[in-house]
Amino acid sequence: MSNVSLHNVRKVYENGRVAVASASFEIAAGELVVLVGPSGCGKSTLLRMIAGLESITAGDLAIAGTRVNDLAPRDRDIAMVFQNYALYPHMTVAENLAFGMKLRRTPRAEIDRRVGDAARMLGIEALLKLRPAELSGGQRQRVAVGRALVRQPKVFLLDEPLSNLDAKLRLAMRVEIARLHRTLGATMVYVTHDQVEAMTLGHRIVVMSDGHVQQIDTPMRIYEKPANLFVAGFLGSPAMNLLRGRVVRNGAARVDLRTASLPLADVPLPDGADVVVGVRPEDLEPTEGAPPGARIAATLELVEPVGNECFLNLDLDGQPLVARVPPRFAPEVGSRVEFAIDPARLHYFDPRDGKRIDA
């Protein structure tokens, strides 16, 4: 197990495009950190810099306390699992697992031991004599993970390893990777655009956008206290509702949303200031049986039943609003639906710079 340290790591291409503006954070030995963000945010570029597949324009990158900026990938003692599996089609599973060790002239007995251990751990012992074309997508992904596993590296790097799998296989492989990490206690850096993967796998999440690190924290802390409008709108499915309004301090402090209003916490905003109020879909509670609190009413436009719950898509004075409700709550499309909101569950953001405003 080894730690990974990034200090003002930056990547600028020859055409002037900034892929990673400045990344500074520490990945502890044995930690699983997920880099998450939309396509083009710089997460894969950052992973490739850790691997040595992309040069570093500026800053320092260290693995196990050693600066590795100028080290070749083979000298960094890392193993990478790619999105497209990258298996040799003419080799059997056993040969794919052993190939890297053969290049390093590992003794035959040691190769056999490591291949056997990895195959047992991943449940692919029956596949060792097959070639990649004879495997399912999930089996190929297990082989790709196994090939990294036999290396026994200092750091595992996984670049969107589940994106080619269907939903059921993704869930199974998420469980597999989490179990594997617990068993090995290895340092892992995992890249994904899928927030569910990020939330369920990561000890900590690094949220990125446009080459900038937006927030680093545990999944639930980020979910409960997003640092800015981007994080609030990105993390969560459905995303946090973001409602634009204006501060009114005449009487009880509130945020005016035209025909509705929400209470204003003790935040440093003057009367008349613009503000964005965030509320999670699950924090909108139908007033039928809801406890007292702030109340708003919106027009129902679409009901999305997904089995164990429903998503209500509503219109609040021209602003979209989504509520997560029990499946038995099914008002008619076009009706006005009233919700209670616990004021303590509201979030406030400055629309000028997008930053969170705390009391």
Rank of each mutant, 00 (worst) to 15 (best):
L149Y: 13
I296H: 01
E282Y: 13
I124M: 06
F230P: 13
L321N: 01
R114E: 13
Y223E: 06
P305C: 13
L229Y: 00
E282M: 12
L171E: 06
L87F: 03
R244K: 13
H90M: 05
V248S: 15
A227Q: 07
E160G: 09
E285W: 03
Y190P: 03
R105D: 10
P270N: 02
M80Q: 05
A21F: 06
G16Q: 06
T106Y: 08
I222K: 02
E224Q: 15
F230M: 11
Q214E: 15
A330C: 01
R254M: 05
D274F: 01
D317Y: 05
A29Q: 11
L97P: 07
V255F: 07
A323G: 04
V306T: 10
P238A: 01
K168I: 11
D60Y: 02
G100K: 07
C310V: 13
E14V: 08
Q214W: 06
F234G: 12
V4P: 00
P161G: 10
V231N: 12
P327A: 10
L169S: 11
G278Q: 00
L169A: 12
H203M: 04
P226H: 08
A265V: 04
A29T: 04
Y13G: 02
E176M: 12
R204L: 04
I205F: 05
L157T: 09
T218I: 08
I63D: 02
Q319G: 03
D75Q: 15
H7M: 02
A29Y: 02
A109D: 15
G42W: 00
V231K: 05
L6P: 08
G146N: 12
P343E: 00
G278Y: 01
A118Y: 02
L284Q: 09
H90E: 05
H7I: 09
L87M: 03
P331D: 14
R48K: 15
V115I: 11
G185W: 03
A298Y: 09
L229E: 00
V248N: 15
K102P: 01
V255G: 07
